[in-house]
Design a protein around this nucleic acid. Structure first.
Lengths: 183, 183
DNA sequence: TCATTCGCTCAACGGGCGTTGACTCAACGA
DNA sequence: TCGTTGAGTCAACGCCCGTTGAGCGAATGA
């Protein structure tokens, strides 16, 4: 017999809804994901989703909450390794939350804004490690490069990038980023 | 007094609808673009759009028809310049048709398939110019790099890439692609 | 024990969507 | 000139969506 307090049950239900939402948003994007589908995946009534998250947009906002890596700025070389490392994470185990954000970034204004904010912070961080008057531009290019690889691999699922280890990709991309950090 | 044959008027109307559709698909993506909005932009009744293109999907299919560049395979260096040149086109004057395709590629299955096909052909083309057993992988990375830059610039409209000339971007990206072609 | 809280469901609403079939009327061909 | 064609419109259908308010019933606490 399950002996769970009311608040504990509620917390679990809330989490179950949120995880179902993350999965569906990551897979189909904002527009193609319906409250009804989320509710069904969470084995719950659609009205409950509304009650907990207010609106579909509220649910999406809760689903894409993403923690920023701390990452103190250092020299260019360490920064490159750090960026490549985050790719390693991106290629293997990018969180459903981040995938949900990326999946909708081209068609949902709020998702686009979130991505711009995240990328903006990464550009700042990389830019601090670079010198030269076009440091920001080069930082932006490095960031979009990583974005492109992540999109091609995780979202478009290009055949050529399937079954490739993150290390292999990092090895090939390293000289590429170095060239960009030294120009 | 306008003296236009019936077939000529029809042709123009059809074009007007198609161009309105391209613009809206490029701007908002497949799901957020409604037949009604296209019809209004083309100053036409929604039913006429259906009559000409059969369905919303048919309209989208007609809107994203894109011609492939001929581009004979050559040495790595020429290939890099060619890729960077296509970026020049991408940064400045990427066709509404291509933008429509890219805008929806993460959320609309048919658009994703089109993009995969286009990128696949580009990967083939680049791969032929490279040597080594991981030529295809490196070609895929070069392609996703260009995709990332195009997405960041054209679709996400990152501040850092705004007001940057295609030549400047090409100059910074060139050593980057060279590094990838020589590894 | 019993009134109260509250997690959760049920049924419905209003609206926008893609899509359809009947209709209008100007251009056309004989 | 006159019947026919066909470009374009109009009104509506049916569906699915996000969202809402009333209600149920088990856990809660005095």
């Amino acid at each position: 017999m399950s002996e769970l307090s009311r608040t504990e049950r509620r917390r679990r239900t809330e989490r179950r809804i949120l995880e179902a939402a993350r999965g569906l948003f990551a897979e189909r994007g904002f527009e193609r994901t319906t409250i009804r589908a989320v509710a069904q995946a969470a084995e719950v009534d659609p009205a409950l989703v509304m009650q907990y998250y207010g609106s579909k947009q509220g649910l999406f906002g809760a689903a894409v909450q993403v923690a920023e890596p701390p990452a103190a700025g250092a020299g260019p070389e360490e920064m490159i390794e750090e960026v490549l490392g985050s790719l390693g994470m991106k290629l293997g185990e990018l969180s459903p939350s981040s995938l949900a954000m990326m999946r909708s970034m081209l068609t949902h204004p709020e998702a686009a804004a979130s991505v711009r904010a995240v990328l903006g912070r990464q550009i700042d961080r990389i830019g601090e490690s670079l010198s030269g008057d076009d440091a920001r531009l080069r930082a932006a290019l490095m960031t979009t490069i990583m974005l492109g690889v992540a999109v091609g691999h995780q979202l478009l699922e290009l055949d050529e990038l399937r079954d490739v280890s993150p290390e292999e990709v990092a090895r090939l991309l390293r000289p590429c980023l170095r060239a960009l950090s030294e120009s």
